[in-house]
Design a protein around this nucleic acid. Structure first.
Length: 806
RNA sequence: GCCGCAGUGGUGGAAUGGUAGACACGAGGGACUUAAAAUCCCUUGACCGUAAAUGGUCGUACUGGUUCGAGUCCAGUCUGCGGCACCA
């Protein structure tokens, strides 16, 4: 009987004592950097979802180690953020205290998994020694013109009296209290991620990432080629450009719409008879758009401004309307409209604005309907162009490039340009529990960076967490005094903190820095270890953390601090473990704790069960049915290899082939993170070993090695029992011989017209003619062939014979 | 609406275009036991069939297609999941 609890403790202590997990960052010969997305230290502690992520990642790291790599697998805590602050509001416990407790609890739990984390290099983003680098990063962004301030709408919850991050707004409501989130203008700090839009796309080619994630990022960045059309409002000096990514139908444009939020709108309307009505409606639209139940189609409305845009196309001036469907911060917030866009069409119909279609279906009857604007005819590849004259008869689907050139070069009314959906990154948060933005304001209100010598610019503690509507740091007397003392009377501190995604955008580097207070990351260490060889975490970060950290690496590389502009070379997403079909969360009360399972079965069984459940990238609904199967397997391994006498008797050919096949399969499956089939292969091997009269000791040692990444404690115990040298964690990964993966005889299927009619056993090297002859002799095959003419004979070597009869 | 992914026994899931259901769980039957647990053995996609068998038919969401052969490739449909969403 294998006793997991005493054995696991024993090996965890031995590994710790031997410093098996401590990486020598400076002297490593064969560096391999692998880590998971660090967890948030919540009061929920670790749940099975964490294990589902961490345990396979650890198995992969252990495998790499046995392949001779100097593996570095650190762990840390993404400790700033709203949950700790909310907990503080509720209980009065300072976030720093609750986080410290939670971190301790989680480290204890993490140690029970038996993962090879190098705890010496742990990071905690909420500690000053970490966040001084968050602040350093801000200063570097500021120095390099990548940080700027502007007014923008933030998500505001009236009930909680606080700003919420986008991710704290679910379907337009506050995730805590359900209040509809309002948008409120505030001055915010932004980082110019848009400068890197193209590079973020171009670099995708060199990343070993899931195609899905890259696609999501591409969609998020939203690169589009198109034109900016030069425009001017009649009888004013106001000139602007209009973005058009479907410029083929520019001759159909009959009116122009401007976003209700457009900042020039009040100025344009000033003193005009329509001013009051237009601005009132604009206000109404703005409010409506912020509400949860805003429906773009049903709520479509607008108003004529009385202004006209000078016509660049020769059809008369275009009336300018305020319209609810215009996106304010894409292009210029002003759009020319035509009959060939669904929204423009609907708007024109509603307000009786004339339309002038310029492309038509080939069918004359349908063409007439389009001409009569009975329906909107848009984005049809085969639409026949009628205007401009020069392109008459050509197809919408192929005329695009020529039209762009025509507008730009001949008509000189537009310029070809690439546009992106990506917006600059708003990093300000009006919250307490985050890294303070290292900025102070002079008495005139101008921002100044805090010199690096004053970092860490510490988060003050004399703050009441109860929400009051202003940023909590504004209450701190200590912070204000500190600011005045250093910078002078009348100077004030920035009271916003940074988005937690800033903290997590560079933590891999700080693992490598080993607490270095002078350097962000030592140059030679960075060069040796970055980019991270294997990064594992959830797909929900595809368009947040995984874009931000790429951007930050690009910027830091450009500033000259690091060598690689990509932080994560290979990326894998684990699947999501749900319970009852929904994501585990404390509020839903469906969190499953791993502790009881670990107590009962041990860490090895529990982690193998999670890996055996299904493909790592698949996830699934939690169920413990089946964990017994893994427990039986572990007991079987122990009984066969640990408790019974092994011998030096030569193994049978059959067993040897199976062993070689298993080494091959396990190797390939761990490389590709297919742990479920990897464990199956080992089960098959053990099922065969079970049938043998004795167990060969070399085979037993090999099995211990194969098990080591998956069930590290069991493998060490076996290794010790079998008299293996040192610890199995340090052993070399077993190799296989391709020639030995094939047995002397092979089973070959015999098909007639694609239907299986029998199988034959042949010698591995048998000639095609002999195999086919043998196949025809199978009684059941012969019966089916009787009286029939064989038209075709196919032999797939080592697989099957296929006979085609008439 | 757009983009991406998936649909296989009672369950989790295996299958470079080549014997569908590996490996497990569960279930049924049996052995051991005073009994239970544990363990071991047999059966387990559906239907039909034989004295017996390596017997037959159907079967991977649905409808077609390509192929000697399709869970796998192609076209279309349905359903589910994930992401984006007034982006002109």
């Amino acid at each position: 009987m294998y006793d997991s609890s005493s054995t696991e403790k024993k090996w965890q202590d031995k590994w710790a004592k031997a410093k098996s997990y401590t990486a020598d960052l400076k002297n490593a010969k064969n560096p391999y950097f692998s880590h998971v997305m660090f967890p948030y230290p919540s009061g929920d502690k670790l749940h099975v979802g964490h294990w589902y992520n961490f345990a396979p990642a650890d198995s992969f790291a252990r495998y790499q180690r046995m392949q001779g790599k100097d593996v570095f697998t650190p762990m840390g805590f993404d400790a700033f953020g709203l949950p700790a602050e909310n907990y503080a509001i509720k209980t009065g416990v300072h976030p720093d205290d609750s986080i410290t407790t939670n971190v301790e609890t989680m480290i204890t739990q993490l140690k029970r998994i038996g993962c090879m984390y190098d705890w010496d290099k742990m990071v905690n983003t909420s500690k000053p020694e970490y966040y001084q680098w968050t602040q350093w990063l801000f200063l570097k962004m500021f120095e390099n013109d990548l940080a700027y301030r502007k007014d923008a709408n933030v998500n505001w919850c009236e009930s909680c009296q606080t700003v919420l991050a986008n991710e704290q707004c679910q379907n337009g409501s506050c995730e805590r209290c359900g209040t509809v989130v309002e948008h409120k203008p505030m001055t915010q700090w932004y980082w110019k991620i848009t400068n890197y839009a193209q590079r973020l796309l171009d670099n995708h080619d060199k990343l070993d990432w899931p195609e899905k994630t890259i696609t999501m990022q591409k969609n998020w960045i939203g690169r589009k080629e198109g034109v900016f059309i030069k425009s001017k409002i009649k009888d004013t000096d106001y000139e602007f450009e209009v973005w058009d990514s479907v410029p083929q139908t520019f001759m159909a444009q009959t009116f122009t719409v401007i976003a209700a939020e457009h900042e020039e709108l009040p100025q344009l309307m000033k003193g005009r008879p329509e001013e009051k009505a237009v601005l009132e409606l604009a206000e109404k639209i703005k409010k409506r758009k912020m509400s949860k139940d805003f429906n773009p189609e049903e709520d479509m409305e607008g108003i004529f401004t009385g202004l006209y845009v000078e016509d660049p196309f020769g059809h008369g001036d275009l009336p300018l309307w305020v319209a609810s469907y215009v996106v304010a911060d894409y292009g210029s917030g002003i759009v020319h409209c035509s009959a060939h866009d669904e929204r423009d069409f609907a708007f024109a119909k509603k307000y009786d604005i004339p339309l002038r279609p310029v492309m038509f279906p080939e069918d004359p009857e349908e063409a007439q309907k389009v001409r009569d604007t009975e329906y909107c005819y848009a984005k049809e590849e085969n639409a026949v162009m009628e205007q401009p004259e020069k392109f008459k008869g050509r197809k919408w689907g192929e005329v695009r490039e020529d039209i762009i050139r025509y507008m730009a070069d001949d008509m000189k009314i537009a310029r070809a340009q690439v546009n992106y959906k990506l917006r600059d990154w708003s990093i300000s948060r009006q919250r307490y529990w985050g890294a303070p933005i290292p900025i102070v304001y002079d008495p005139e209100g101008n921002p100044h960076p805090i010199p690096q010598e004053h970092l860490p610019w510490e988060l003050p503690r004399d703050v009441d967490f109860k929400p009051t509507g202003t940023a909590p740091l504004a209450q701190s007397k200590e912070l204000l005094e500190r600011t005045e003392k250093i910078f002078g009377k009348g100077w004030t501190p920035e009271v916003d903190t940074m988005d937690t995604f800033v903290c997590s955008s560079f933590y891999s580097f700080r693992y490598l820095a080993e607490g270095n207070t002078k350097e962000f990351v030592p140059k030679e260490i960075d060069k040796k270890w970055m980019p991270v060889d294997m990064y594992i975490g959830g797909p929900e970060h595809a368009c947040m953390h995984l874009i931000y950290s790429r951007f930050v690496s690009m910027a830091l590389k450009d500033f000259g601090y690091i060598n690689s502009d990509e932080p994560y070379q290979r990326l894998i997403h684990q699947g999501l473990i749900t319970n009852g079909g929904t994501k585990m969360s404390k509020s839903k009360g469906n969190v499953v704790s791993p502790d009881a399972f670990v107590d009962r079965y041990g860490s090895d069984v529990f982690r193998m069960y999670l890996m055996f459940m299904g493909p790592f990238e698949g996830g699934g609904d939690w169920s413990d049915t089946g964990i017994k199967g893994i427990d039986r397997f572990v007991q079987k391994v122990w009984k066969l290899l640990g408790e019974s006498e092994t011998s030096n008797a030569e193994v049978s050919k059959e067993v040897n082939v199976k062993l070689n096949q298993t080494i091959k399969k396990v190797t390939q499956d761990i490389e590709s993170l297919h742990f479920n089939t990897c464990i199956s292969a080992l089960m098959e091997l053990m099922n065969l070993v079970e049938k043998q009269e004795s167990v060969n000791s070399q085979l037993a040692l090999t099995v211990a090695k194969l098990l080591s990444p998956l069930a590290p404690h069991l493998a060490e115990e076996l290794w010790e029992k079998l008299g293996g040298e040192g610890m199995v964690i340090d052993a070399a990964w077993p190799t296989f011989d391709e020639k030995l993966c094939v047995s002397d005889t092979i089973e070959v299927a015999v098909q007639i017209n694609g239907k299986l009619r029998g199988t034959i056993t042949i010698d591995a090297g048998a000639a095609e003619a002999d195999v086919i002859a043998q196949a025809k002799e199978v009684p059941n095959v012969a019966t089916h062939l009787e009286g029939k003419e064989i038209r075709k004979e196919i032999y797939v070597p080592g697989k099957l014979v296929s006979l085609v009869i008439g």
